[in-house]
Design a protein around this nucleic acid. Structure first.
Lengths: 196, 196
DNA sequence: TCGCGTTTTATAACGTTGTTGCGTTACGCT
DNA sequence: AGCGTAACGCAACAACGTTATAAAACGCGA
């Protein structure tokens, strides 16, 4: 007997898509529920019935960002030789971040006030790094890398690429400095530091 | 002949101080000009006559953050032995960030929407890293480090510590992982990767 | 076929934000 | 003493996220 619902899965995807576009076009500040609803031909109520709140909408974007990230990292071909494999993963990581910088900002930079990723979202984030952890674990147990906790190596390498990408995206690097020029060499030096 | 001004340097410092406290207490979201003015016993106009806008006020905090950062890094005693020196600088960097995480978020994490550091602010940011660039340059020219562009090494090391600290502060690291345990070892591995 | 009940949705109201114009305030000079 | 002038507090404005309210749109029983 009720009224037929238009706040369905289709609209949910449309809103997510449009939200991503708004953010990519004019930054996270430009994402307003009123604009989003008007652009999508609905009302602000849709966001609340489909997501719960604005932070919850952003959380969905966060998850989507990590999903794309993980998909890209998973396609990197691995040879079993740790250092070049890690270099390739690092390059793919940077490419992913540069492909959608505003999404990367949501993932790592708290660019939307009031948004904190929930537990489910954090799990997705962890699983994204599976290829990296795999390579490191194998390199430690095969003796290529020093016998330290693999988590330490993983986090160090992740921190390194994230830090560089983060500095690059925030424009905080020296003006004359080109990341692409030395990135591979730096990756190599970084991974080599863990060799036996 | 005019009315005597109360929006003076004293009030400017008071506002900066209070703004830092508000942010440190409840995060960047909690910084509202009305609260800030009320807490400081003045009106919102003060912020506009002293800073220009809210982003400009945050810019002043940004500069202040880098100033404290630079002061702390400058006190690190250097021995001339590159790797241990860089480890010490890295430890001081993390300590500075952990000492005032919300200020660090302003410096690197765009936590206040609409704020972009201006040119003068970026200069301050660059000069903060002077001790780091000094050590790296000396290590390259003395032959301790590989003969690559010192900027590359500097940015790599900076990216590494920034990345780790950033991940730690955003709570994105695995729950069981303790940064303090392996941080020094990771710093060492990272710097060693550039040895000849 | 006509209304009633139920669920869903759009609209409008609320409180708060950054910002700006306006009127008052408070002094020095004539 | 009173006027000119600069500075300041207050209030209005537009926009935001959120919530309460009322209209809308269907199936079902009469």
């Amino acid at each position: 007997m009720p009224r037929p619902r238009t706040h369905d899965e289709t609209l949910r995807l449309k809103l997510l898509d449009r939200a991503g576009e708004l953010i990519s076009a004019d930054g996270p500040k430009a994402l307003s529920l009123r604009k989003l609803a008007a652009d999508s031909g609905t009302s602000t109520t849709a966001v609340y019935s489909l997501f719960g709140s604005k932070p919850d909408l952003v959380n969905a974007l966060y998850v989507e960002g990590f999903r794309r990230f993980g998909a890209r990292l998973a396609t990197v071909p691995l040879t079993g030789d740790a250092v070049p494999d890690l270099v390739r993963l690092g390059i793919a990581y940077r490419e992913s971040a540069l492909a959608d910088p505003h999404l990367y900002a949501i993932m790592f930079s708290r660019s939307v006030p009031g948004f904190e990723p929930n537990a489910e979202a954090d799990d997705v984030a962890q699983s994204t790094l599976a290829p990296l952890t795999g390579v490191v674990r194998a390199a430690v147990s095969s003796g290529q890398f020093q016998d330290v906790a693999p988590e330490l190596i993983t986090v160090s390498l992740w921190g390194f690429v994230h830090g560089l990408v983060s500095l690059e995206l925030s424009g905080r690097l020296p003006d004359n400095f080109s990341v692409s020029d030395g990135y591979e060499k730096a990756l190599h030096a970084n991974a080599s530091g863990w060799l036996t």
